[in-house]
């Protein structure tokens, strides 16, 4: 009992406790996850459109991107993009006559994980776009919709329910992939936990707490995506299956 109370003391939200550190770690994790997810979705959307409508060169480049990223471990990609990306950017800035900048861990993390996510979401969104029944698009065109109107009114709403299962999966993957940034020294939840565990010697307890926090994020996200899926598939329960 005393040992348990002593451990609770260590979790206090104060200079002496690690509660606040874990909380800020979680915030950093969520920030990166959100940022990388949105960047990845944006890349995925452009990538999917490029793969479907682009010329042979665009398609080849996008194919190389998605294949390479999906065959190389995230950890290797993170190191490559982290070092190579910041070195390239600084060389570019120097050649343009600017001073080199120090890229913040947050931005680097978001960009790196976003690029990785982009490869996966390109495939998810491409699959969803191609699964839209042709008749719906033809009906829109027959009504005289412009390309943009067609895209906004038919393609997007028809695509969302098809892309949601894949996209929710990708969100769950990115929240867990943020832990990889601990290896390059970014202070998100996993690294904070490791530091806390190493300092206090409560290894088992701290890693269990971190696991519980990640699991909570996953379970809450699951609820959210279930709600979204129910919303977006209203009125089409029997269709399309």
């Amino acid at each position: 009992m005393d040992a348990f109370l002593a451990f609770l003391n260590i979790l206090k939200f104060s200079d002496m406790g690690w509660g606040d550190n874990l909380f800020y770690g979680l915030l950093a994790t969520l920030q990166i996850a959100f940022g990388a997810y949105f960047l990845g979705t944006a890349i995925g959307f452009s990538g999917a459109l490029g793969k479907i409508n682009g010329g042979p060169v665009t398609r080849f480049l996008l194919g190389t991107y998605t294949t390479l990223v999906r065959a190389v471990p995230e950890l290797v990609l993170i190191l490559l993009l982290y070092y190579a990306g910041s070195a390239l950017l600084n060389e570019l800035l120097m050649s343009l006559g600017y001073k080199p900048i120090d890229i913040s861990g947050l931005v680097a993390g978001i960009v790196v994980l976003g690029v990785v996510q982009g490869a996966y979401s390109t495939e998810v969104i491409r699959g969803a776009l191609q699964a839209i029944p042709r008749g719906q698009l033809e009906a829109g065109r027959a009504f005289g919709m412009s390309r943009f109107t067609l895209f906004r009114r038919i393609t997007i709403p028809a695509m969302i329910p098809l892309a949601l299962p894949g996209m929710s999966n990708l969100w769950l993957i990115v929240t867990k992939d943020t832990a990889l940034l601990a290896v390059v020294g970014f202070q998100e939840l996993t690294l904070t936990t490791r530091v806390a565990a190493g300092t206090t010697r409560y290894y088992l307890e701290f890693f269990l707490i971190a696991a519980a926090i990640y699991l909570t994020v996953t379970l809450i996200s699951n609820l959210g995506f279930k709600w979204l899926e129910r919303r977006s598939t209203r009125g089409m329960t029997s269709l399309g299956h």
Binding site: L172, L180, T190, Y203, L204, A211, T218
Partner: peptide, 23 residues
């Protein structure tokens, strides 16, 4: 299945190696 799919593998690995390994 839910617990192991819902937590990062890195945490599981460190939990086993540092956590159990320290006990």
């Amino acid at each position: 299945c839910t617990a192991f799919r819902g937590t990062p593998l890195l945490i599981q690995l460190w939990l086993l190696y540092y956590g159990l390994g320290s006990i």
